[in-house]
């Protein structure tokens, strides 16, 4: 039992980080929006890392999973608001978000996960745009006009609850997604999935020869990462904003942000995405004040610098430094 607990001790710094963030947010309501934004980046980074960091494959169309998740929540509220489901709408919305993102990840994965390296990246690069144009072109769910459902939400759960849902619970749900992503990452790392992913990231052919069904494990990581993204979209975008436009939720810049966060913190590590998200989120917040509009111009060259000079990222470097010390048990 003790040993079992020890195996999962690296979750402690993660929970501590989220606890502190949440505490600051609750203590200083004026900073709640900043905290919520940081939590969003943490969740985004951890969900993205679960696939990119652990497999070494990069999905340039990742934001599409957030997009369809947003639609999952939107569809639930927009079409079912008068069925007397009350707060149950939110759970149906989350479930739909998970279903939509699983569906999309299966469709994309069926093609892309058969392909290696560069071809995988090529297969994913159009997913977000392709899906956006599908929604607009086939006029699905109002097409390019999007869906505005604040009125529906108010009718379903009442004005007060609707308000609390989008100003507080949406952000708390984001924290929930972030914690869930961290727990899943650690559970994978400590089980066969994690070992299989490490092996295939290092050498896919050798991994196969070792008896690893690489396609199966890639699919597991891909779907998990996609569902987390779907839940994130459902809470951070749909529930919080109570509207959805295809051109917003399939916007490639969120994929860029996810890449920056994971690389800054350290791909394939547990704590990395949190560190990356805090560095990125905080600098973006201050840059928006000091140099509005320059964030990406500053961060894009930083990605290149990291790739060339520090491919392990912050936590990767830290892990090397603390090898052999007591901290090793907690920071992975």
């Amino acid at each position: 039992m003790m040993r079992h607990l020890q195996k999962y001790s690296p979750i402690l710094p993660v929970l501590l980080a989220y606890g502190v963030l949440l505490g600051i947010g609750l203590a200083y309501p004026g900073k709640w929006q900043l905290i919520a934004q940081l939590a969003f980046y943490c969740a985004l980074g951890q969900a993205f890392n679960l696939f990119m960091g652990m497999t070494g494959y990069v999905d340039f169309g990742y934001v599409a999973f957030l997009g369809v998740g947003t639609y999952g929540m939107a569809v639930s509220i927009y079409f079912l608001y008068d069925k007397g489901l009350g707060i149950g709408l939110i759970f149906i919305g989350l479930a739909l978000a998970a279903v939509f993102s699983t569906g999309l990840s299966l469709a994309v994965g069926a093609v892309a996960l058969r392909l290696r390296g560069a071809y995988f990246a090529i297969a994913t690069i159009g997913v977000n745009e392709g899906f956006r144009y599908f929604v607009e072109g086939a006029r699905i769910w109002n097409g390019a006009d999007g869906m505005i459902f604040s009125r529906h939400l108010r009718k379903a759960v009442g004005r007060e609850t609707a308000m609390t849902l989008s100003t507080q619970w949406a952000d708390i749900l984001v924290f929930g997604v972030a914690v869930l992503a961290a727990i899943l990452t650690l559970v994978y790392m400590r089980n066969k999935v994690g070992y299989a992913l490490t092996a295939l990231r290092e050498d896919e052919d050798a991994a196969k020869v070792m008896g690893i069904n690489v396609t199966k494990f890639k699919i597991i990581a891909f779907i998990t990462s996609a569902v987390l993204a779907g839940l994130l979209g459902a809470s951070a975008w749909a529930l919080k904003l109570t509207y959805v436009y295809p051109e917003d939720v399939f916007e490639i810049h969120y994929t860029v942000e996810a890449i920056i966060i994971v690389l800054l913190g350290g791909a394939g590590t547990l704590l990395g995405p949190i560190v990356g998200a805090l560095i990125y989120g905080a600098s973006k917040y201050f840059l928006a004040i000091v140099l509005p509009g320059f964030q990406l111009l500053i961060f894009a060259p930083i990605i290149i610098v990291i790739i060339v000079l520090f491919p392990e990222g912050t936590v990767g470097i830290l892990k090397k430094k603390i090898r052999g010390t007591a901290l090793e048990k907690f920071i992975i």
Partner: peptide
């Protein structure tokens, strides 16, 4: 597998073979 430790490398053989 370069980033995995010696122990992990050998364990991977055991758990998937």
């Amino acid at each position: 597998f370069a980033s995995a430790t010696v122990r992990e490398n050998i364990a991977i053989g055991g758990m998937f073979g």
